[in-house]
Design a protein around this nucleic acid. Structure first.
Lengths: 362, 362
DNA sequence: CAAGGCTTCATAATCGTTTAGGTAAGTAAC
DNA sequence: GTTACTTACCTAAACGATTATGAAGCCTTG
């Protein structure tokens, strides 16, 4: 039991390794009788192929990597679920590589991770963060296709595929809703630009504020709850008054902000309205139920995986025909998924007393 | 740039492949001058080793796998973080394999996953669920060490290492607290026995109920929020009255239960007290703040990884000395981590009107 | 019945590393 | 000056699969 090679099977069954290989891989050119004998012997011997040997010899790989910087964000679970769903039928292995240490993104870890992925000659990469230009280039020079999710390609690789929320329009929707409430004084608590979704989220909100004649303050914090808490605390102390509404750039920041508001007994939405950017399971159960954007991460994951699979397939096809094996990126690979605003209570809806200028509840 | 082999480096630098290999791997027996020349050439050529070739040739592998059945549980993130933390220094690759499809555990997927792990000749496995006996045996026959986290080893592998919460005592603590509140009518909403933590959680609660003269009903649901919701709804309809307290076996079930209570406008803790089994970031912000057990998943992950690393190391040592390479499992590898009860409001603490027999708030 | 086409299987090269088993030169010991 | 030991390097055999090339046997077919 265990630890037998194809040679062992070959000897035991009295057929050449060629025949055994063909039989096991389900190829044609082997008689049904031989195939059955091979399969039986292999089972009896407990033969399990050595993947390293297969990969070394074979041209095409069958693993794709997902690069994350776990901001302990649970949207990541949905994303993975979508990716797995799309890739399961094709029977590919998905490995996830985290480039965060203690919850914080680490540049050297990203370098090491990319190095590793190339060492393993991955078939493709899905990245949840904008890679460093060097790394994008490196992957490109090894003809490994990359799809960005919820992040934009780096400067030197603008044509790389990406699947993101339509953050700009999402922000416009948020802004519209805030304006409907009559809020004029907005505070956006946001993560650093390293996470490139920030750009469109902020841009949309700036535009919305302009359109509706509202004042928008952008407050940057590190991308975790603890930083969000202290950054916001410092800001509120400095400002000496509450804005009408707080918009949290993502869930870790939302968490930090809500903790602070609770500590200071600031009630939502009476004293300040709150809107978040990521839907999550507990949102309807919080106090008050939170109004958030639904990013549909699962859909994003699914699309990203499908896009990647398509590229890899095309790549294999091209190589078979002797053409360049570098991945072909079509413009339509850059997709945006519309988000919807899930309106609950924290924005002030269904609440009589609202922060700022009181107005009719929409 | 890209795609050069060690042979290319060897030719370019004018040294044998042996020397190049030695130089790159940092082994002794190469002059400093040669090493520098090799390194420089390798860098210029953009040489990146082929891991498949390395793994094929090398005796020892350097990847460990984590098997999960994503119950979309966010405790999983903490667990991974702990594992990564413990394994990062040793520079090992961690791959996670999910054996759930659409959030539900799938037996055939488990089989396929184990097959895959053996194909890749993994150095070790950390499993968050009790594996099927066949699979445990299979891994054992390939001398691949397995550590179970938050789950017990299967029947045929009782001696396998495991790191779990001390669920029995945790349940006693919960029971004690409920008794302090004067609750006599307990309802435990719990997942199927496939997740083996159920056994001790239930056993502890049964014992606590006996000690304190309370009535305990155990209600089993599938391991997801939707099932929990419908199972609980059906039960409440049948029972026609509310228990004094609802204990949710884990977070997905808690989520489903809370949704139902909210739908039916049952208020916590006035109408029914609620206690959960997994601490999570949003717990203090819910309405009301939830009383839950803190499992300390990160600590569990860390310990599991350390245990696994120790076993693999010992295994390598034993093999070097010509002894059996099958992993050695010491009894003390079975560890339990104490959980603490984080008391907030949902249990009735700090609330005047309590469900059931009113008593002094402890 | 010769020629050609299938079907079924075998031989052996190949993938890109690591490493056991050398060798040649230089140094130290006696 | 021989012997013994180091140091720095090389040659070539693995590792365990896939697959290009081809051969033997049998079946058609004109």
């Amino acid at each position: 039991m265990g630890r037998s090679t194809m040679r062992d099977v070959s000897r035991a069954v009295g057929l050449s390794m060629f025949t055994v290989s063909q039989a096991l891989s389900g190829a044609v050119g082997v008689s049904e009788e031989s195939r059955q004998r091979v399969l039986k012997t292999a089972r009896e011997l407990g033969y399990i192929p050595n993947r390293a040997a297969q990969e070394l010899r074979r041209a095409n790989r069958d693993s794709v990597a997902v690069i994350t910087a776990s901001t302990s964000n649970s949207y990541y679970l949905d994303l993975m679920s979508g990716i797995q769903q799309a890739l399961r039928p094709s029977n590919w292995t998905v490995v996830v590589g985290d480039v965060a240490v203690d919850g914080a993104y680490d540049e050297r870890l990203e370098d090491r991770m990319v190095q590793r992925l190339i060492e393993s000659r991955m078939a493709g990469v899905i990245s949840t963060l904008t890679l460093r230009p060097e790394n994008a280039e490196l992957l490109a020079s090894w003809d490994i296709p990359v799809v960005f999710v919820d992040s934009s390609p780096p400067e030197n690789a603008k044509n790389f595929p990406s699947v993101t929320t339509d953050n700009y329009n999402a922000s416009l929707v948020v802004g519209q809703h805030l304006a409907d409430h009559g809020y004029k004084d907005w505070l956006l608590l946001v993560y650093p630009a390293k996470w490139s979704t920030r750009f469109d989220r902020e841009r949309g909100l700036v535009e919305a504020a302009r359109r509706h004649g509202a004042e928008l303050v952008v407050l940057e914090s590190e991308n975790d709850a603890v930083s969000a808490h202290s950054t916001l605390a410092a800001y509120l102390d400095r400002a000496g008054r509450l804005p009408h509404v707080l918009i949290a750039g993502n869930n870790p920041l939302l968490l930090g902000a809500l903790k602070l508001l609770r500590e200071r007994s600031i009630t939502i939405p009476a004293d300040i309205a709150v809107v978040g950017y990521d839907e999550f399971a507990w949102a309807p159960l919080l106090d008050p139920p939170l109004t958030v954007l639904n990013e549909r991460s699962e859909e994003i994951g699914r699309r990203a995986a499908q896009t990647l699979a398509g590229i890899i397939e095309a790549q294999a096809e091209a190589e078979k025909q002797g053409q360049s094996k570098s991945p072909l990126y079509r413009p339509e690979y850059q997709q945006q998924v519309a988000a919807e605003l899930v309106i609950r209570k924290s924005c002030g809806c269904g609440h009589a007393h609202q922060p700022g200028i009181p107005k009719v509840t929409p």
